[in-house]
Design a protein around this nucleic acid. Structure first.
Lengths: 210, 210
DNA sequence: GCAGTTTTTTGCGCGCCCCGCAATTTTGCT
DNA sequence: AGCAAAATTGCGGGGCGCGCAAAAAACTGC
């Protein structure tokens, strides 16, 4: 047995696979934004990257999945971002800060891209796939929360917290898409703070009405 | 203008359409549970109800959508359940009670059905479609919450609350599916209460660890 | 009831998608 | 260089989703 590298050092093979996957995902998103979902065939994505259509389906089982792969890719960053928060920090603060940190990267989207994306999400299949991507991230986030909260924490509660975070992200994102040039981050944070406090503003509104 | 019925009295046509849709949805779910998703073709569902395959696609754009239609069908009941809560009731209580009331109907599932469903949800497409169905219900719930909270409420906060409720529902359901014969309702309510209080248990766990 | 209008159902056809399989090529290692 | 493991590819097939136009069915006013 040769000395075994601990964590990374993925073999060259793995790295090429990862690169191919990423290239396909990026190409899929790019092309979808450029020409719209219906004018995009799997064949196009494949040839853009220089592989056969069959190979595309070795990496993704649908073009929708490829397009949404950039969301799933946040997985690792989410986990690491939460791990990196100082351990004294209250859980909610840590989660909020971690979420904020790594959603900074949202940028790099033309105004037209945003419009295109809004249109594309009218498509049921793509929308569904996007939700699935979020669910995947949610699972990882839940694990990270469990890890941080320690063994005594109820795993279901951790999942719930992760679910809340994903809801906030989804809703803020959607709002950002729809309302032209609103901003994403402030809304995201606001929703998280609201949730962490038990949605007092709504309760107050209801009380005022009574 | 003849006297116009206020709410219902859908013409015969509408009612037949609704019936057909429901029949197709039910048949789809039933058949999927019986033989599994991969052994189910659109043609089967159609012929079970006695219509042409082409007609099936006039009602649903995929078999997955048909299978999940029972979730979307809760829409109206959710809305009505929330409207029916006494107006003095605090918002969270009203939402929780409304959600509880109408998720009572979850029943009517064999032990085998549950297993089958768990297997079926391994299928990415079906899982995605289920999330989409939940998202649809979430939207309606958000409207109902807005209505109840009054004009002053922030619509985004309403959406957030609806998102939290759906997360709880989804997570409790998933837990119920996986853990054999756990119960759904208690978990659901517990998660909602936890969320309405800002997830104190997790925060406490983290604090204890420090 | 009956003629006319609207709506729904249906068959047909097309393009695309997803995947299993087996042959081929590439890669990593010694 | 040579070998074993793994990735890519072509082929073929079953199925799906939908546009279109014809046929059938349901409602309308008389």
């Amino acid at each position: 047995m040769t000395s075994e590298p601990v964590a990374p050092a993925l073999g060259l093979r793995e790295r090429k696979k990862l690169a191919a996957r990423q290239a396909l995902g990026t190409a899929a998103l790019r092309l979808a934004l450029d020409r719209g979902l219906d004018r995009l065939r799997v064949e196009d994505i494949a040839s853009e990257v220089g592989v056969s259509p069959r190979t595309f389906n070795n990496y993704f089982s649908s073009k929708e999945e490829a397009i949404c792969s950039f969301i799933v890719a946040q997985q690792e960053r989410v986990r690491e971002a939460l791990r990196a928060r100082p351990s004294g920090e209250p859980l909610w603060e840590a989660v909020i800060n971690a979420a904020v940190e790594q959603s900074d990267r949202e940028g790099r989207l033309t105004r037209e891209d945003v419009l295109r994306m809004r249109d594309m999400l009218q498509n049921a299949g793509l929308f569904a796939e996007m939700l699935r991507a979020h669910a995947t991230v949610e699972r990882v986030l839940a694990e990270a929360v469990t890890e941080r909260a320690g063994g005594g924490a109820n795993p279901l509660h951790a999942r719930m917290l992760a679910g809340i975070v994903q809801s906030a992200s989804r809703i803020a994102f959607h709002h950002w898409l729809v309302s032209g040039r609103g901003e994403f981050l402030p809304t995201f944070v606001e929703l998280l703070r609201e949730a962490s406090a038990g949605m007092p503003s709504l309760t107050a509104a209801a009380a005022a009405r009574t």
